[in-house]
Design a protein around this nucleic acid. Structure first.
Lengths: 328, 328
DNA sequence: ATGAAAGCGCTAACAT
DNA sequence: ATGTTAGCGCTTTCAT
């Protein structure tokens, strides 16, 4: 690997000059610029980011912490972040936290040790404090905290909407599947749905599930044993909804005639289920991209007009909910 | 952030001593060790990896290039890689290539500029040469090249197996959906399946599709128009298989009675399809983990007994293929 | 407009 | 057993 000195020698100038022309900082005669660039070209010189980072105390690296890239909701976000940052020459150091505080801390530490310019994270509630005294910008993604800028989606409206959909379409024995209460967005959508449901005069049951496939399957099996009369299910996410759908089909229950089902997230494969799953869509990619945009603004010392960006969710109507009666 | 000098001052020793006890290199009296560690503790000192990296010309960073984290096959691999590397204190710099040569090169360059110790990549055939003259270890994942160590799965057996399954279970009008021919593993499984099919006396048709949802849907719609008598489909991956499944159901064709369908990869949601999809499983997580293991060995200058590790695939029998007749 | 030199935080000779 | 110091590759005053 060629260093700046090699280039300097090749071009017959000092390293300072090379540095100046590389960075477009300070003066440099047109002619010497050319000579230097020629040398750069010839030696295929690429500045060592590590040395640069050491001096400037800032790298071109951004830390990204996500709970679990294996959950299809997060890769969308990750790509949103990456695609946006990539244009500005930033690279991602990445870690899965599994919602575990220890792992989050470990990643935060090592990111810091690598001079990241900023971080984007979906952290568990309790880990927020880990970000408190950093002197680099942090933006939260899909999670929130008072003190930190954040990009997230409108869980309240989402939860409410899910409930409204089933209600408006005539379900009266509804099971609401609640995800892990420690995960705030999941809890919020649950609470919003519950409130909406309670205001209607329908039967409501609550069941717990993890956000995973197995969790969903276990939960859903019990569901039909305990509440065979169920005619509406609101799942905490699409994965659990898919598990529910499978169980429904297995039991020969007609959907959406006998039972309606709605998921949450709109991860890609929901459209591939049969029947295709109705769900509440979170704009995951967009969330990632906007978090990245916000981070870059903060890195560039620009003021943020909005520090908490709440993106809208939407109902994606497919075939596990009934067509709403058109107004006569 | 405390530096090594702060610690040295606090402990009343020189920076060299601090460095020694931090790294367990060279001598250090038990007592001074204690003093130093106390200072480290007190100041919450974490060594600056950038400075360390600059001096050693080696960071604790590993570059990972994957085609698209948004395709559920790859996050599994990524986690396999991450979980394995993480134990040894390595961190991941990550980039999606979208199978584009330009992006691959760009990532390779910046990874190098950041002194990565090694790289793991699923690169397109043509980009392999970009890795040729690096003086850090590289291991290919899901892809192969003669000159580079690689971890991949047995595509030939996989393709053959998929074909065998349909054949043994009685399909006689088979459509083989071929993915992009530029992607070697996808091409290999296709070729292997085709050969197997040709040796049997059945009707075989080939159709092309991308690896995506839309691609699959488009392809599959045509499929039934062109070949309505089809009674067996071998899809290039699970996503396309899911699209096929949906179309089959929509048309009211009975599966597996009237038509059999087999996918490839065994990504997580295949089990959630209805009916659950039979598929050829690639051990994605394991592949990632083994690539990481191999990389670490190379980083540690250990000799590799095997440079090309071919992991076995397996048939996951679910409900889109018929039960094979038991031997009488 | 250009160069010399200090210094970012660390490690590893080398000296003591 | 511990300290002094050069140097990793770069950027940035400060001279000239």
């Amino acid at each position: 690997m060629a260093t700046i000195r090699d280039v300097a020698k090749e071009a017959g100038v000092s390293v300072a000059t090379v540095s100046r022309v590389m960075n477009g900082s300070g003066y440099a005669h047109e002619d010497t610029k050319k000579v230097v660039m020629a040398a750069v070209e010839k030696l295929n010189y690429k500045p060592n980011e590590v040395a640069r980072s050491l001096y400037k105390r800032k790298s071109k690296l951004v830390g990204l912490i996500l709970p679990d890239i294996t959950n299809p909701f997060f890769p969308e976000m990750a790509r949103g972040v990456e695609d946006y940052l990539q244009q500005f020459g930033y690279r991602l150091i990445f870690g899965n936290s599994d919602e575990k505080r220890d792992k989050e801390i470990e990643y935060i530490d090592t990111f810091l040790q690598n001079n990241v310019v900023g971080m984007i994270a979906s952290t568990s509630e309790e880990a927020n404090e880990n970000f408190d005294n950093l002197d680099i910008p942090v933006v939260l993604l899909d999670r929130t905290a008072e003190k930190l800028p954040a990009v997230y989606s409108d869980q309240k409206t989402g939860g409410k909407l899910a409930a409204r959909v089933l209600l408006d379409r005539g379900s009266t024995n509804i099971v609401l599947i609640r995800g892990p209460v420690e995960i705030k967005p999941v809890y919020e959508r649950y609470m919003a749905a519950l409130e909406e449901l309670k205001q209607a005069k329908v039967n409501v049951q609550v069941m717990d599930s993890s956000l995973t496939l197995q969790g969903g399957q276990t939960c859903v099996k019990q569901l039909f044993e305990q509440y065979p009369e169920t005619d509406g299910i609101i799942a905490c996410n699409d994965i659990v909804a898919a598990a529910a759908l499978q169980e429904i089909l297995k039991r020969g229950i007609r959907i959406p005639e006998d039972i309606q089902l709605i998921g949450y997230d709109d991860i890609s494969f929901t459209a591939l289920l049969h029947p295709p799953l109705s769900t509440i869509r979170q704009p995951a990619y967009e969330m990632g991209a906007q978090a990245a945009e916000m981070l870059i603004k903060r890195i560039n010392q620009e003021k943020l007009e909005v520090t908490h960006k709440k993106l809208p969710v939407s109902f994606v109507e497919r075939q596990t909910t009934r067509r709403k009666a058109e107004k006569t």
